[in-house]
Design a protein around this nucleic acid. Structure first.
Lengths: 229, 229
DNA sequence: TTGGCATTTTTGTATACACATATACGTTGT
DNA sequence: ACAACGTATATGTGTATACAAAAATGCCAA
């Protein structure tokens, strides 16, 4: 309980999880709590605001603050750079460029990224290894219309992800997770059987309304993405 | 720009994404920004604190605030109740209890939930349908040692998830996502071929140090979990 | 009864001020 | 050269105060 608002937050949190303040019930207002805890209203306000942010309580002017009946369960994932993810586990990271090709985008990609008629794309496939074992297969397309520099970049040593982060650090993205079946290519690269179920992430990235890249990341067999909340 | 700190936040954000303040660079300190924007330092502080929370900038006392070189990419998922998820899309939701059984927990479950020697578990399997089509297969174990009430609950109309949310609304959980291959049971229930790759979520739930439940949620073929960030 | 308006309560935001705390950096002493 | 120490500085937190904005409530009039 180093600081007041933190202590307050925890106190309120325990009162809620222990059921002192039941779901749906009205929590005392800020002024009353400030009196009870002998602090300023601003301090109560900060504690409550953060708890609302976390989805534990619901606040409305005049109506007051109440404990959520159905708590808003939300989990937060940090999307790691694959190299750091591997190194964080104390494993040795290795990268390899598998294929590189400049091409006209297929229709599905043109639609997905909303590309212009004459935009070309750089198509890359890469492998990421952890401790020598296949870890992640990366299939990427980069919009050369938005990022012509990518044509001259050397992706044999540094993966496109890290290159892009250095080049376009702040972008909007849509990410989705799903399962996919290992085709011939995937089973070869990831060292698994054809038809194995693999965890896959797809990400489309934009910067100032322009499509930058679309990537599929297919993980080794048995991969799990975990978080607590 | 309804409120000052929001406007400030957006202004700072654009300066960062547009590259006015480059990655790794020091941004002006709170006092200077307060002068520039003609507001109080507390207002600047709030804007900056939230941006740090979002992973855009990094703050250290005395050292100042700098733009993150590798922006902390983090996505937030709201974990929905399956019924609401389906109804939110305007589809009709239907639920069915497939199996119900009270049993001794298998060893792997005992280990995972850290169960006592004589704890029994309620094993349930259920189906969730959207617009009449299989949507999600639920395989659940509830620790009767912690929640004896569950023995008498009627899970034929309301799914165990919704029952549990009403019963133990605020719990800690660990969730993980992966891919699994459809076995005989899954392919039957979800109407897909054996061996199909399916997206799966697993969740272990605790309340005050006691294991409540472990559940596997296997989704229909082709399911995606998507978010923007 | 019902619709609309004014009142009042509660949270939301902003300000000025104070002090705490971490820590980069320069200074001093060996 | 290097370690120890002190100091300055930027962020972190807390308080008192003020006004704004939303919205539930009650009142009044048609």
């Amino acid at each position: 309980m180093r600081t007041a608002f933190r202590g307050l937050k925890e106190e309120i949190r325990t009162r809620i999880v222990e059921g002192v303040w039941a779901p749906g019930e009205l929590v005392p207002n800020e002024v009353d709590l400030a009196v009870e805890f002998k602090c300023a209203r601003a301090t109560v306000n900060r504690a409550m605001r953060e708890l609302a942010e976390e989805g534990l309580i619901e606040r409305k002017r005049k109506a007051g603050t109440r404990v959520r009946t159905a708590p808003l369960r939300q989990a937060r994932f940090t999307i790691p750079v694959v190299r750091k993810e591997i190194e964080a586990r104390g494993a040795e990271y290795r990268y390899a460029l598998v294929r590189r090709e400049i091409m006209q985008p297929p229709d599905w990609l043109r639609a997905r990224l909303n590309l212009a008629q004459d935009d070309e794309v750089l198509h890359l496939t890469c492998m990421h290894y952890a401790e020598g074992n296949p870890y992640q297969f990366e299939i990427r397309w980069i919009n050369l219309g938005a990022l012509p520099k990518a044509k001259d970049a050397d992706f044999s040593k540094v993966g496109p992800n890290e290159w892009l982060i250095a080049e376009v650090p702040f972008s909007d993205a849509e990410i989705s997770f799903s399962a996919t079946s290992a085709d011939e290519d995937l089973s070869q690269q990831l060292g698994c059987a054809r038809g194995d179920a693999l965890f896959m992430a797809e990400r489309s990235t934009w910067w100032q309304g322009q499509a930058i890249t679309y990537v599929r990341l297919v993980f080794q067999r048995g991969h799990r993405m975990t978080t607590r909340y």
